[in-house]
Nucleic acid binder design. Structure first.
Lengths: 223, 223
DNA sequence: GTCTATAATAGGATAGAC
DNA sequence: GTCTATCCTATTATAGAC
């Protein structure tokens, strides 16, 4: 049950590939069709337009996100929940990095997608808040309750625009998986000053873990 | 010496206005010409193309930034330097918010502008590092030297994409000056956990200052 | 489901008169 | 310096045959 993709799915997959490789803006419906060796008319049989494709891709992204993030409140340690969360978010960020590379632009062109995105982000914020609260209650983070929500927003901003930041900093080199993982280190730096003495070794440990991932020459995952 | 703008300058000013109001992507050279009551041909007499206009705008932005930031190392207190810096950066961010609203997109379309931007950002980073070092030496921030450069990047990312974040969060409402100033509060939150006991009241003070600015209903500055 | 052919725009840009 | 008229091109999208 590996192959046998219907044309519709092939269009979605090819779009993700091309968008990631050349930027969403630079890839037209004709390019996608040509890349697949099908006619533009055929593409338009399956999708109303490019936005329609983008909406399908976003749906797929959301499904993956939901399925990979561990349900909160199970027996695991609070810091493990954080690590799981960072893993999932940054891996998906890499697989769909075209989306993060031009987020405001993409959303500005499709109100319906923007609304959907916004709704999802509301859930994301709550998830982050939950994780922070757990870390606070576990004595890992010494973070004033009053600052918690604002701090969650800061994390979210940092994560969301990490790819964009990378792109603005380096006109020449294209981003790779390793550079994306450096974003995790930036997030951990945000946590560091709030870490209790007790938790500092564990944070350090996490830091070293992601340091290694970030240093590896990127070897494309088997996506 | 107020009026008497040459057509070239009028084009630049009108472009900034329209870009801010409707987004850079949505405004074409024809729109700009129509808005000014001149012909497209006339516009193209003064500028090669839209990118040329954007480059001129960026130059103006840089000039303003340079002229408004106080030279470092003068007699003022370290925290005053920070406040001055935040004031200047966020006010200019408001006046040119179209640029920040779609930064990766704008830069991706013009390599030469991107190179220029990158060079300026190099200086910006150094400026931020200098301010942080001063704050450290003044005993205001208890920030490990080893983390300083990375922390500077985090600040820069937060500032650069604050507008983008606002736009992604709210599809409906357009951003105003007050919401832009809320970004300063986010930056201060970054500093807070590093603040020495000694400096906490001053940070608090700054926080309250910008809180007020952020709460005001935006009254367009006399730009 | 898929193709070929083609229409409809819109946006960027220039030539040549004034 | 400015205008009018126009052209070129890329992109989107559809009609109708197979």
């Amino acid at each position: 049950m590996e192959k046998k993709l219907r044309t519709k799915d092939k269009i979605v997959q090819a779009s993700i590939e091309l968008f990631n490789a050349q930027g969403e803006r630079a890839v037209t419906t004709n390019h996608i069709a040509a890349h697949l060796g099908i006619s533009p008319g055929n593409l338009y049989y399956h999708f109303r337009n490019k936005e329609d494709i983008l909406r399908h891709i976003f749906k797929e992204y959301c499904k993956l996100l939901d399925s990979r993030i561990q349900p909160p409140g199970d027996r695991s340690e609070a810091l493990d929940a954080l690590a799981n969360y960072l893993d999932v978010v940054f891996e998906l960020m890499w697989r769909f990095h075209f989306f993060y590379a031009n987020l405001p632009d993409i959303l500005a062109r499709d109100l319906s997608l923007h609304k959907e995105y916004q709704a999802v982000q509301e859930q994301v914020l709550q998830r982050v808040v939950k994780i922070l609260q757990a870390l606070r209650q576990a004595g890992v983070l010494e973070l004033p309750e009053a600052d918690l929500a604002e701090f969650a927003h800061t994390i979210k901003l940092l994560v969301t625009f990490w790819i964009s930041y990378l792109k603005t900093q380096a006109p020449d080199k294209s981003i790779d998986q390793a550079s994306v993982y450096q974003g995790v280190l930036k997030v951990l730096l945000l946590f560091k000053p709030y870490a209790s003495k007790l938790a500092q070794p564990r944070i350090q440990q996490l830091q070293e873990h992601y340091q290694q991932l970030a240093e590896q020459t990127a070897t494309p995952a088997l996506v």
